[in-house]
Amino acid sequence: MSSALHPPTAHRMIEASGVHKWYPNGFHALRGASLSVHRGEVVVIMGPSGSGKSTFIRTFNALEDFQQGTITVDGIALSNDLRQIDAIRREVGMVFQQFNLFPHLTVLENLTLAPVLVRRRDRAEVETQARALLQRVNIAEQADKFPGQLSGGQQQRVAIARSLCMEPKILLFDEPTSALDPEMVREVLEVMQDLARDEGMTMVVVTHEVRFAREVAHRVVLMDHGEVVEEAPPELFFTNPAHQRTRAFLDQIL
C-alpha cells in the first residue's frame, strides 16, 4: 500500500518546536507542541476533541498566534511581521471543516478570486486552470453555480480546488469530512488521496478517518492536552503504539 506513496524528501516544509498558546481567557491550548513535516509528506493528526490539534495546524498559517516556541514554514520564521504572514499564507492552503466557500460568488469565482487578486495573474488563464481543477475533483459541470446550490461533499471538493488554484506548497486540512453526511465522506477522501499519490502534495490532515490515515499517511501523530504524544508510521501507530494514551484513544475510536 505505502509503496504507491511518494517518498518524502529531506527538505523540511514545516518545523514547529515547543509551541505554547494561551487563549485570551487563559486557557492553555498548546503546551509545547512540536512537529516537523518534510516536503511530499502526508501527516495525519489525531486526538480527542479539545486536544489542540485544530489550534496547532491553524498556527502554521498564522490564523492563530502563539506565545512561545518557533514555527518555520518553508524557511520563513513566523513572526508578527504582517508581510511575512501574507507571504506564508500564499504558499499554505487550508481546507476547513465548514468549507467556508464564499456564498456570494460562483464556484468558478471562488477559485479565481485569490490567484487574480493576490498573484495578479491573467484572469482568462486562471479560469482555464480553475476549470481543469474542477474537472479533476469531478465537478466541472457546477462551475457557474453558487455554493449554496451544491451538496456538502461537492462544496468541500470546491474548497480543495480553491486552495489548489493558488498552487500552494503545503495543504492543511482541518477536519475536512467531519461536517459531511457519511455517503459524501468517500468522494472527498478520494480527492485527497489522489492529491497525495499523484501530486506528492505536502499535507497535514486533522481527521478521525482511520482508513485514510492507514492508506495515505506517511506518519500519524496523536495529540492530547496540547502536546504531541506519539508519532509513528501508520502500521505501527494502529497496531503497536508506544504510549498508553494512544492505546486508550484507539480503544475508543476503533
Binding site: 490564523l63 499564507r89 500564499r90 487550508m94 476547513f96 467556508n100 464564499f102 478570486l113 485569490a114 487578486l117
Partner: peptide, 26 residues
C-alpha cells in the same frame, strides 16, 4: 461567520482585499 475572513486570509488576501471582495459584499 468568522470563517469567511479566515478563508480569505488563508488564501493570501490582505485584510482590505478580504473586506472588499468577501466580507463587505455579504
Amino acid at each position: 461567520p468568522p470563517g469567511q475572513l479566515e478563508a480569505a486570509r488563508s488564501l493570501g488576501l490582505t485584510v482590505p482585499q478580504a473586506l472588499r471582495t468577501v466580507v463587505l459584499p455579504q
